[in-house]
Nucleic acid binder design. Sequence first.
DNA 1: GCAGTTGCCTAAAGGTATTAGGCAAGCGGG
DNA 2: CCCGCTTGCCTAATACCTTTAGGCAACTGC
Lengths: 192, 192
Amino acid sequence: MARAGLTPERLVRAGAELADEVGFDEVTVSALARRFDVKVASLYSHVRNSHDLRTRIALLALEELADRAAAALAGRAGKDALAAMANVYRDYAREHPGRSAAARMRLDPETAAASAGVRHARMTRAVLRGYDLEEPDQTHAVRLLGSFFHGYVSLELAGGFSHSLPDSEETWIRLIDALDALLRDWPAPSTP
Amino acid sequence: MARAGLTPERLVRAGAELADEVGFDEVTVSALARRFDVKVASLYSHVRNSHDLRTRIALLALEELADRAAAALAGRAGKDALAAMANVYRDYAREHPGRSAAARMRLDPETAAASAGVRHARMTRAVLRGYDLEEPDQTHAVRLLGSFFHGYVSLELAGGFSHSLPDSEETWIRLIDALDALLRDWPAPSTP
DNA sequence: GCAGTTGCCTAAAGGTATTAGGCAAGCGGG
DNA sequence: CCCGCTTGCCTAATACCTTTAGGCAACTGC
């Protein structure tokens, strides 16, 4: 019988495609085996287990996303950079909903530390160099942007903003405006 | 044999507790049956299927959250109300991580429309009455707050902000400051 | 206390995850 | 060229979760 030519890389790539087609939650070792027309057990020489497969898809998505962000940020600063980075996340989510969900998967700390997640953090800080923020405000801002991007993309993908006006596109543009304004004019701590 | 006294309500409540203990993803019909010391098939007279169970847990969580928010908002306005609402979400997530994850579960449109989600939307708009926002900016702001709360709570629960300084508590307070400032001084659309 | 309902059980089938061990495809050396 | 070794994919088996069908016993109301 001819061999299927499985490798971890091909499996992960196919798993990512599967995720985009049927949703990250439906990515299963069995479904992937079907896709390669191979028995389920065969995958276990290339991937440790189901969790390992999903983790690798998440890592792939984080890499792709970081690559796109790096490309988009090159030569931009200030609001331009902010908008570029924001659009990278949103566009990726719309083009690759499954991968995008994977990128939001919870990783254990060591895996996360070795992932492209750290590039994301560095790039976010790079964007913030266009604004005048000292520590710890810069970290607060990193967390604000992370939360907002994560939340907006999740809600939009879940259909939260469809079927109501104004459409999501307009909100998105206006919210980037708003965040830009906030970062430019970052408030001092309130005195309680 | 004595009967276990199953009802949909008891199952959903126990399912919510189970979610808080082991995570929403691990909430399974089998695990719930074990918890009641009952055979798995017995649950199927009370709950349509696994998805139905999870949906009901989500609806419970949304109700609880809306009740808390309503209580917290009574008699408050402006930044006070904003902070109160924000803290409801965050505190709920910390006290009830499983329910909180359930509340973020994707619901189909009809279910969502019949859920306490609409109360949340109304209350968010009520909070925004303390700020001077016309439509469509009010809707943009609703979406901003929704995204931010959702994102922040997800990331914090996933451990995204632990093991780094400043601690999440401080960031949280400062970001509420920041959002308050942004809402008070909402920028006009940028002219592209 | 009896009849009817209904709640929980047994049985069974199908899907996913995972491990152990086997056979042959394809590569490298003679 | 072909022989042997590696290793890739397979069969087999176990375990768990989901879901449906049908049965018997425990409550409920008369």
